[in-house]
C-alpha cells in the first residue's frame, strides 16, 4: 500500500512548532515523520484516526456527544464561579471560543502559563 505524503506539516508537541515535517500516512495512522525530533516523532506516531475512545463519557459511562455538550453547558451555567483552564494543546480558534465562553459565563480564564 502506498503512503500519502504531506510536506511541511506543523508539529505542535513543544513550543518550537517546527513547520518542516514530512508526514507519511495511510489515512489511519502516520508511519513516518521525517525531520521530526524524538518528541515530535512520538507525538505524530502515537495519534491515530482510530476510534479508540467513546465520543463522550458522563460519570464514566459512554454517552452521545449532544447529551455531553448539553450537560456540560448546564453544569457550567449553574455554577457561580466556573473555571476555564488549559488551552495549551488546542488551536487558537478553539482558544478564542474559550475566551468567549468565559466572557459569557462570567468565569475565570487561565492557561498553563500561570502554573
Amino acid at each position: 500500500m502506498t503512503l500519502q505524503v504531506i510536506d511541511n506539516a506543523t508539529c505542535t508537541f513543544c513550543g518550537c512548532v517546527c513547520d518542516d515535517i514530512q508526514l507519511h500516512h495511510d489515512e489511519t495512522r502516520i508511519h513516518q515523520a521525517k525531520r521530526a525530533c524524538v518528541l515530535g516523532t512520538a507525538w505524530f506516531l502515537n495519534h491515530t484516526a482510530e476510534r479508540k475512545y467513546p465520543d463522550a463519557l458522563i460519570d464514566g459511562r459512554e454517552a452521545p456527544l449532544d447529551e455531553a455538550i448539553e450537560l456540560a453547558a448546564t453544569l457550567l451555567h449553574e455554577a457561580d464561579m466556573p473555571l476555564i483552564y488549559g488551552m495549551s494543546n488546542t488551536t487558537c480558534e478553539a482558544q478564542k471560543e474559550c475566551a468567549a465562553l468565559a466572557d459569557q459565563l462570567g468565569a475565570l480564564l487561565d492557561s498553563h502559563t500561570s502554573l
Binding site: 513543544c14 513550543g15 488551552m87 482558544q95 480564564l109 492557561s111 498553563h112 502559563t113
Partner: peptide
Amino acid sequence: RGHGNVTGADVIMRWQT
C-alpha cells in the same frame, strides 16, 4: 515555551481580554 500552543493561549487572551 513547552506544550505546543501555550504561546497561542497567551496571545489569544491578550487579544480578547
